[in-house]
Design a binder for these strands. Sequence first.
RNA 1: GGGGUCGUAGCUCAAUUGGUUAGAGUAUCGGACUGUCGAUCCGAUGGUUGCGGGUUCGAGCCCCGUCGACCUCGCCA
Length: 600
Amino acid sequence: MECFTDEEFQSRITIKRLGEYVGKSVILMGWIHRKRLHGQVIFLDLRDESGFMQLVIPKTLEIAKMAETLKEEFVLFVKGEVAQRSAENINPKVALGNLEVFVSEIRVINKSEPLPFAVNLYEGNLDENLRMRYRYLDLRRDVMRQNIVMRHKIIKFIRDYMDNYDFVEVETPMLTKGTPEGSREYVVPSRISKGQFYVLPQSPQQFKQLLMVGGLGRYFQIARCFRDEDLRADRQPEFTQLDIEMSYICQEQLLQFIESFMISLFQKFNPEKNFKFMPFKRISYYEAMTKYGSDKPDLRFDMPIMDATDVFQDTTFQVFINILKEKGNIKGIKVENKSFTVKETKELTQIAIDQGGTKGMFAINFLENSIKSSLASHLKPEEIEKIKAIFDAKPGDTVLLIADIARVVHKTLGILRLEVARRLGIMEKVKNDLAFLWVIDFPLLDWSEEENKYVTTHHPFTSPKDEDIPALFSGDPLKILTKAYDIVLNGSEMGGGSIRIHNQDLQHKIFEMLSLKEEDIQARFGHILRAFQYGAPPHGGIAFGIDRLVTVLQNGSSIRDVIAFPKNNSARDLLMEAPSPIHEDQLKELGIQIEKPKTE
RNA sequence: GGGGUCGUAGCUCAAUUGGUUAGAGUAUCGGACUGUCGAUCCGAUGGUUGCGGGUUCGAGCCCCGUCGACCUCGCCA
């Protein structure tokens, strides 16, 4: 085994600093990134956390014999002299390609087995199962190292930015109490209070409001959140939020503050992208749903949903007659300069049925003086003219129509809108655009058929809009809008928040609308309502998904790539192999019995 | 819980759509080579085609089941 003195470790130079040591002897430590054996000379690329450097070992040296036996990913101690490369040997493709190190001494710090997959490739797919099991090797890959380093730099930028605006970062508890609304929570048994449980926070929502009552004024946190729901490419069971709350603030101030913040962030970390909307576009929830069929529309392209219901008041087409009888809608989107083949139309119809939940789709291809459509025999000339006018259809354009109840029509057309944009290469064309928008004016309440009562669409502390407060007492509760907002980027929800209720009477009225009994209110929200009795300042805030933000800034596609140790699709950690059973003694100590899974 | 895609050498992929002995690149091992930089050249090793069953004269390919990864619907105030 090789030995190293403290002095040697202390005089180690990282590779990125070698430019300062040309002509000098240095000590390097790192991994063999790649090796090139020639007849007369050996090249080793040595990699450390800061970069990589070509080592040169002429075969005339005594150490060459040993150097030939070294393998990729061996950990080396190297002593050598830094030299400027001669002009013809400079490699302009890599950082520090103008330098090399002539080795005088090599010691093997640690050997490595051949790796289960190569970490020195610039590109190429890898099975995620493998990557996760050997995440520590995956992290050696350049793209992963960059993601993790950039994540750090982005978070540091955020902390500095917030600090500059007098925000105070406060940590809030991980072991806390459940809230009945919202997502399913992760549960932690209490040993001291047997039969009782903590839950992990799905967000620090109530704590940040309590911090406002506590006089913090401006709070933020890089906060870990936990939600026990099924996963997606952009959803992990534990994820990181930038959580923000401010006192004495109105919605307009908050939106503008966040907007400037987003602009600074993207200009610093992804300057090649263009902001499509400056200032950010704002649309109501209603408009988002009816015009784009989504509460998080991708507005890098328009292709809005248009209403053709009125065209068919006198239709003879039985399908439409039935829909109209049920107070349904007939709406569509226009696809410019595109005629779908029979096969394409069939595929789109199938998507509409499978994903949208509708029964079919009708395509109308406008030609110079006629149309091509399976609907052609059912359309009167004046109906065709009206459709043409509504969609402003030119010869060559195709209109896709969906007829169903409003909710299904919007959802289906929202899905088709995205599918068509992908197929036509529109998505590819707009990939460098940033379509930031605020979705505002969310309804306060929704009617739950299952529970037969009103439920909040956001959370029960969300303030209604001032002008809608009277409607709480007389009027249609479903028409009440709130001071809630989501920030959407390229079809993905990046964050959301609201101005909160600080008036106790109003808060109680909301609980009343939700059909909550006084004892329920006290049991579930007593702590925060009590806090509000002692002079709560008006306040509001927002929370961002940091993982999604970093993914977009890094032009990635999965948040797993910007998380050092993520979980897989089934919420398992394949590296640590969690979750796992725990010992019988531990269960006993916690007063927990496991129900044996039923076997066939 | 539902739907979809995938699973072939350590890794990344192929196999003319059911037909002879399952191939290539890379890694690994051996050799050659005067400065390369994803070095190159020659040679070798490497396979229970995820697993179990079925159909067939014959299955990597078709069918059923199962396990796993990914995408997605429900779900995520």
